[in-house]
Design a protein around this nucleic acid. Structure first.
Length: 475
RNA sequence: GGGACUGUGGGGUAGCUUGGUCCAUCCUUCGGGGUUCGGGACUCCGAGACGCCAGUUCAAAUCUGGCCAGUCCCA
């Protein structure tokens, strides 16, 4: 079996090889940017979605689902939004053999599908807040190279859409989303930084956008998701108004919160190593794989003990796989390590006789597990694995940032850079050119390193209004 | 939108410059047999490909054109 490419020097090749070796998708579907979710990959996706659902519903949001097709005239109502998505929509222009009177857009995101209906639903201040989300597929005609999970044309999309009584409440909703994402990211063991995007890079039609960026090696970053404050930018064109307590008519202020399977890509990119993927237990398709080692003369002992252990753990609620195939044990170890399974339990003659299994976690720690205390000890080892994974990820996170004091210093960056920025678009673009990437924006949370005093804008030298911003190379 | 490059079994490849030695190489994968069995076993048998359509030629994986698909660079 071939070695994986080196993660540090050939990141993209490594990433593609890991996705392939872990068997998360099948990329052979003959439409660009549309991958097949294999049973194993689908399990990961389902676990991921479960976390999203749990955390968003904890904030009082309700699931619903809108249709996938949007009439062209509704799609065109908000000018900035259209400009932003025009070039990447798929059109449905025919029904059977005849042309449609009104062409339909296959949703690239669902504002324009949902908001005409919000206008009907929202009548009174008593209808507010309206917090709903859906998990659906959206379609974007990406022109750049597509990559599994990270840049696809059929996106598995989580989108929350809300209506609030006023700007303050909408700001409050944004905060609540940031907090919900903090909990989601904890389950994924993904360190990230919430960053307010610069004006020219906010969501088309938004008042402002806050994105979650994770460093994934070198100066590269991956946007994990985003939260947007729309103010009245959509409620005006779509006529989403309510009658306030004082009898006046008011436009709602809206927010959205978007996430996708990119999170899975980030989990692979951040945690993966030279052996393949590494899944945190919350997402792992299988949390434990049990491998019986029959041996030549050990009889049925190992097999019986292995299935007993698997059955008990399954009843206990663990996601478990018993690998009873007739490959040699070593081949199975490699396979499940590449697949990112957190914990492996080995059952050979020795284990069967002593009723003590051998556990090996994906980070390389090994030790005995008494069959008597199986559920408890496996639970502890999984928790310990998550802790160690978090520690490793946070160490890498902290090491991913460095201050740059001049534009020249940005060239060839091997870290995400903190730069002093005056806030002007012209300077922003100079910074982007210097790092051959993007000015990600200004942090919305404490920085992972202490950069000291801001000083002067790295591009124009102005000291007035200069603040810390982040620059990197988005994947 | 402009340009460059690339398409060979399920995956990765050799062959292409200079057409014939190719009913296409090697690794992997898959099916079957035997020996094995605590970190990717060995061996034997078998399966599986020249992106599509035209053209040039006695002869095309190889040359030409168009199409399709993909990759990279520039806007």
């Amino acid at each position: 079996m071939a070695e994986l490419p080196d993660k540090r020097t050939a990141f993209i090749d490594w990433y593609l090889a890991v996705v392939e070796a872990a068997r998360l998708t099948d990329k052979r579907y003959p439409v660009k940017g549309m991958n097949i979710w294999t049973p194993y990959g689908f399990r990961a996706r389902r676990n991921l979605d479960a976390v999203l659902v749990r955390e968003i519903e904890a904030t009082g949001s309700e699931a619903l689902e809108f249709p996938a097709l949007i009439p062209a005239n509704e799609f065109a109502k908000e000018k900035e939004h259209i400009k932003g998505f025009d070039a990447q929509v798929y059109w449905v222009t025919k029904g059977g053999l005849s042309d449609l009177d009104i062409p339909l857009v296959l949703r690239p995101t669902s504002e324009t599908a949902i908001y005409p209906i919000f206008a009907v639903w929202v009548r009174s201040h008593r209808d507010l807040p309206l917090n709903v989300y859906q998990i659906v597929n959206v379609f974007r005609y990406e022109t750049k190279t597509t990559r599994p999970f990270v840049r696809v044309r059929e996106i598995h999309f989580f989108e929350e859409h809300t209506c609030q009584a006023n700007e303050e409440h909408a700001t409050e909703r944004v905060r609540s989303n940031l907090e919900a994402f903090r909990k989601m990211a904890a389950a994924f063991v993904l360190p990230y930084l919430p960053i307010r995007r610069p004006e020219w890079d906010k969501f088309p039609g938004a008042f402002y956008s806050i994105a979650f960026d994770a460093p994934v090696g070198g100066a590269r970053t991956l946007q994990l998701g985003s939260v947007h404050h729309y103010r009245e930018n959509f409620s005006r064109p779509y006529g989403i108004r309510y009658e306030a307590a004082d009898g006046s008519q008011q436009y709602v202020h809206q927010t959205t919160f978007g996430l996708s399977e990119r999170l899975l890509g980030a989990i692979v990119a951040v945690h993966g190593d030279a052996k393949g993927a590494v899944f945190p237990t919350a997402i792992a398709p299988y949390q434990v794989v049990v491998i019986p080692i029959p041996g030549t003369e050990s009889g049925e002992g190992p097999l019986k003990v292995a299935s007993e252990a698997a059955e008990r753990l399954r009843r206990h609620g663990a996601r478990i796989h018993l690998d009873g195939g007739d490959e040699r044990p070593g081949a199975k170890y490699y396979r499940w390590e590449a697949a990112g399974v957190p914990l492996r339990l080995e059952v050979g003659r020795r284990e069967a006789e002593s009723r003590t299994l051998t556990a090996a976690d994906r980070l390389g720690r090994k030790g005995p597990v008494a069959l008597d205390r199986l559920e408890h000890e496996v639970g502890e080892r999984l928790a310990e694995f998550d802790r160690a994974l978090a520690e490793r990820a946070h160490a890498a996170f902290a090491a991913s940032f460095a201050v740059a004091r001049s534009l020249a210093e940005l060239a060839g960056s091997t870290q995400v850079r903190l730069v002093a920025w005056c806030g002007s678009e012209a300077c922003g673009h100079q910074i982007e050119a210097a790092i051959d990437g993007a000015l990600l924006g200004t942090p919305e949370a404490p920085l992972p390193i202490d950069p000291g005093a801001t000083g002067a804008c790295i591009a124009c030298g102005a000291t007035d209004g200069a603040r810390w911003a982040l620059a990197g190379q988005p994947l």
